[in-house]
């Protein structure tokens, strides 16, 4: 069993709201400098930069899970995490069918850069990524599970794009794998403010749009950094566990 310090909600330069510094080598360096050894790349409605970050992290000791932050039709942000690039790309193909074909307006929303492992420009993603896919929360969770992934509603304590703000509460028959709270609240405060949280495993994320936003608050005790192991840890089964505490900054 090994301890992984994890940040499971990291944006790159393909998310129009992310800083231009969010390129693969800097993401990898910053995570490692903070003692973080597991991250998930979760851009808005796209997996386009996942492979580049994985390549940049090769043989560095940083594990990089492919993911996406999907925006459902209820305007809920949902973290979708996978083991393999193939699973993530299959999810992307499904999401693409349900995304409206709107062009990005760079002046309003920002640049959407697809880059290589060194951070060099490959292309601009032309479609607007900050918008809702025509998938309900239920459909999205079921689709992620069919592909073997984890589905975790993001920043549920926030006022925008949040499960609790937009839908009031989580219907009990939606089998999410956990709920994410943001940096703005402690787990204890969140559980007091949202009693429904008591019924679900929690993760905490920096929702990293700038390098300084890495939190590394999740300490997973797992055998290896896979979806199956994370799932066991979220449920506290088979000796796997998750503890939330702030990362110690090592630089």
């Amino acid at each position: 069993m090994k301890t992984y310090t994890a940040e499971l909600h990291v944006h790159t330069v393909v998310s129009p709201c992310a800083a231009v510094e969010m390129i693969p080598p800097l993401i990898v360096d910053e995570a490692l400098s903070r003692g973080i050894n597991l991250i998930a790349i979760t851009d808005h409605n796209t997996t386009a930069n996942v492979a580049a970050v994985q390549e940049a992290a090769r043989e560095t000791g940083l594990a990089v899970l492919p993911g996406m932050e999907l925006q459902t039709k209820e305007e809920i942000h949902l973290l979708c995490l996978f083991d393999t690039l193939e699973q993530a790309e299959a999810w992307q193909a499904h999401v693409d069918i349900h995304l409206p074909d709107l062009p990005n307006n760079i002046d309003y929303f920002g640049e959407q850069f697809v880059v290589d492992a060194t951070g060099d420009f490959i292309r601009r993603e032309p479609r607007l990524l900050i918008t809702s896919a025509n998938l309900s929360l239920e459909n999205a969770v079921a689709g992620v599970h069919r592909l073997g992934g984890l589905a975790i509603p993001a920043h549920v304590n926030r006022k925008a794009f949040s499960l609790f703000a937009n839908l009031g509460f989580l219907p009990p028959d939606v089998p999410v794998d956990g709920l994410e709270i943001s940096r703005h609240i402690t787990p204890d405060e969140a559980r007091r403010q949202f009693p429904q949280l008591q019924h679900y495993p929690l993760i905490q994320s920096g929702d990293v749009h700038f390098l300084h936003e890495f939190l590394g608050a999740n300490r997973f005790t797992i055998a290896r950094p896979t979806i199956a192991e994370l799932k066991l840890a979220l449920q506290g089964q088979a000796g796997r566990r998750l503890e939330i505490r702030p990362a110690e900054k090592t630089t």
Binding site: E74, S136, L137, E138, N166, L167, G168, F169, P171
Partner: peptide, 10 residues
């Protein structure tokens, strides 16, 4: 314009 099942509960 929400049509999610939670509108029924509310």
């Amino acid at each position: 314009l929400q049509s999610h099942v939670n509108i029924v509960a509310v």
